[in-house]
Design a protein around this nucleic acid. Structure first.
Lengths: 155, 155
DNA sequence: TCGTACATGTCAACACGCTGACATGATGCA
DNA sequence: TGCATCATGTCAGCGTGTTGACATGTACGA
């Protein structure tokens, strides 16, 4: 209690650098996606649906680390713009399977182009080996913090 | 335009893993700081002021990647609670130098204890060597994305 | 000296995400 | 069968952060 702990400058603390990297990347992606009239959340939602068609709102929310309510807003917006299609009637429980509309797939293709540019720029200074290592180390951090707990962000 | 680009699952994309790590870390820090009645933003603000006393609101905002306006709200809250002190009159331009109050330093010491636990847990699976490498790689990513641009988040 | 540019603090309005709460449909068990 | 439990979708309210705008104080150059 005598001294206030860590004296290392924030620039060398993993947490700080991690936040900075996430912030800068998000800003860069926002800029890249703005001409396509897509936010990062909307883009991520479309890409997830391309890889895993038929996901429900709750499943998408978990995959994107946001609440069901937030995801619901994203889905409503994308549906209203004709970029995706939700079953009007739940085939099983209350879950509404969601799929990309043709317009959504088209928009996503352009978005992936733009995002790819940003990603390449970000990783320009890293070897493929370093890139894999970075992913692995970050994943190790996530699991060390108890990845098992966050079944959902809210709830 | 024929195929929608990246087919790699999102779990292996740096951007996705980066966001996940940042989200999980923030959640863990929020939990750790809640008993102390501090948010992550408030904690970061106090820690920055400990390392660099006398910073103005705008300087703090830049260091924390938020807008001046957001930082202003954080500072008002901390000042009202007696955790920091702002010069009532600007000594030079309009910038108001800010310093930790004794109560703030005390609270910060406890907060650093709590945050240190979370950080240790997160880095448990990494060697010190890997930790440094992780920081370096993330910093490289930030700089590759054009670290020079974001003078301020807003503006 | 004047005026332009720039940085800072502050107010207002808006967007996004979260928590809390509720209703509904499915599942499992007594 | 009846009931408890769980997951999902949805509504309302709140907090946080952002953009836009404005006033003020400083520094620089004609």
């Amino acid at each position: 209690m005598s001294q206030a702990g860590i004296s290392r400058p924030v620039d060398e603390q993993v947490g700080y650098v991690l936040k900075k990297a996430a912030t800068v990347l998000r800003a860069a992606m926002d800029n890249a996606l703005r001409p396509l009239d897509l936010t990062v959340s909307q883009y991520a939602c479309l890409e997830l649906l391309r890889q895993q068609p038929g996901l429900s709102g709750s499943e998408l929310a978990r995959a994107m680390f946001v609440s069901r309510q937030s995801m619901n807003l994203v889905l409503k917006g994308l549906e209203r713009r004709g970029l995706l299609i939700r079953s009007p009637v739940p085939p099983h429980g209350k879950a509404l399977p969601t799929r990309l509309a043709p317009a959504g797939l088209e928009r996503l293709a352009a978005a992936n182009e733009a995002v790819s540019v940003v990603e390449k720029k970000m990783l320009a200074g890293l070897t493929p080996e370093a890139e894999r290592r970075l992913c692995a180390d970050l994943t190790a951090c996530v699991e060390a913090l108890g990845d098992d707990l966050p079944a959902d962000v809210s709830d």
